[in-house]
Design a protein around this nucleic acid. Structure first.
Length: 275
DNA sequence: CGTGTGCCCTGACAGC
DNA sequence: TGCTGTCAGGGCACAC
């Protein structure tokens, strides 16, 4: 379930054990995930010290200083089914990349292999293809109603699909777009260009609210990650509309949550209170 | 350029 | 029990 909050939670969980540690060994267990592992990955990172962890959109960033004294960043994307396992009791068929420090083993596990990793020189990180074109972070100062309004202007595409476009806002996925549109009272199928200024105001607030609450929820689950064999990236979250087709709307008395398909993916919303 | 479609991959679940 | 079909949190390539 990796959208922004899950990646944020994952990064925080990894940071507790990885920050400042030295990578004793880095081991791909197959040739590729979605893309081939970078050539020379193991050699480049063996003996490197982890200087810090960060997140940009749905990318996790593991900043390192290599033995050669170069700043390098290991980028990971969790795709649809990726997660990190800490000190797993055994290595399974879907553990595709292992990071070992003196005290812990981290396994990047991803059954569907839609995730991937890449290695870049840290000074060139912002030029990296996945990051260069990203829109503003939704929890940063860059996301404003004016920004959304400007990017929506003249667009006939549904606001739901526009919000999934990482160039417009970085880090939203299917769940939190559905939830934010519900909170803001905006119909997912509304054309971007027809979303009003006040609606953009509500949308910005809703996006922040939904993401912050999800991160807080994930943070509380982080406790579990301290125990051996802990896994990172998944936590329970009580959704208001996501996956609730046919159930009663939690806000209005008579609404029933409806599911439609947009861009080949499910959208859930309340036809009564989302205009 | 904006928009729409199909596809990468495995696993879980519903229905027969 | 075992088969088949459908669907899943993402993003890219490609066609028009």
């Amino acid at each position: 379930m990796p959208e922004l909050p899950e990646v944020e939670t994952t990064v925080r969980g990894l940071a507790r054990h990885l920050e400042g540690a030295r990578l004793v060994r880095v081991t791909p267990r197959r040739a590729d995930m979605r893309f081939p592992f970078p050539a020379g990955l193991s050699d480049a990172l063996a003996g490197a010290r982890v200087t810090g962890l960060a997140r940009r959109a749905k990318y996790g960033l593991i900043h390192c200083e290599t033995r050669a004294g170069r700043e390098a960043t290991l980028i990971f994307h969790l795709g649809m089914s990726g997660r990190w396992r800490i000190d797993p009791s055994e290595i399974g068929p879907h553990d595709h990349l292992l990071l070992e420090t003196h005290s812990h083993l981290f396994a990047l596990n991803d059954p569907r292999r839609f995730g991937f990793v890449d290695l870049v020189e840290t000074p060139a990180l912002d030029l990296w293809k996945g990051i260069a074109a990203l829109g503003p972070e939704p929890l940063g100062a860059g996301l404003t109603a004016a920004h959304l309004r400007g990017r929506f202007r003249g667009r006939r595409q549904a606001v739901k699909l526009l919000l999934l476009d990482q160039r417009l806002v970085a880090g939203l996925g299917n769940i939190y777009v559905c939830e934010a549109l519900f909170t803001a009272g905006i119909r997912p199928g509304r054309a971007g260009g027809r979303v009003s200024g006040p609606a953009c105001d509500r949308l910005v607030a809703a996006i922040r609210d939904v993401l912050e609450r999800a991160i807080a929820q994930g943070g509380s689950t982080l406790r579990d990650f301290a125990r051996p064999d802990g896994e990172l990236g998944y936590f329970a979250w009580c959704f208001q509309v996501y996956g609730r087709e046919g159930l009663a709307c939690l806000r209005c008395p008579d609404g029933k949550i409806r599911r439609i398909v947009q861009g080949g993916r499910s959208t859930w919303y309340c036809p009564r209170c989302q205009a």
